[in-house]
Amino acid sequence: MGVFLMFIAGMIFLAGVLFVRPKVKTKTAAQNAAVWILYVLWYGITLIGVSFVYINAGVGHVKATSTAIFLFLGLSIVLAVILARVLGLLGVRKTPGSGSAAQES
C-alpha cells in the first residue's frame, strides 16, 4: 500500500510538472528556478499535510488532525495562490485583444 501511494504521489507530481511547464513564462533563469522551487515547496507541504492528516485521523488524534488541516491546508492554499498568480492563472487582467474573440478577428 505504501509503495502504491508513493507511486500515486509521484504520478501527481509529474502531472503537476506537465501542467506547470507550458505556463512558465518568466524572463530570467532565476525567476524560472523560483517558480519551480515554489512548485516543489507547495507540493511538499500539501503531501506532508495529506499524509499527516490521514495518519492522525486514522489513529484518532482529534486536535492533531484539526490543527494539521488548518496549518497544512492553509499553507498549501497560500502557496497555491502565489504559484497561480506567478503562472498567470489568477489575477491577470484581460486586456482588449488578448481574449479569444480578438484572436478570431
Partner: peptide
Amino acid sequence: IFGYGDEQIEKY
C-alpha cells in the same frame, strides 16, 4: 500544539 499526550482517544 498538536495535542499529543494529554488526549483520551475513546475508540480504544
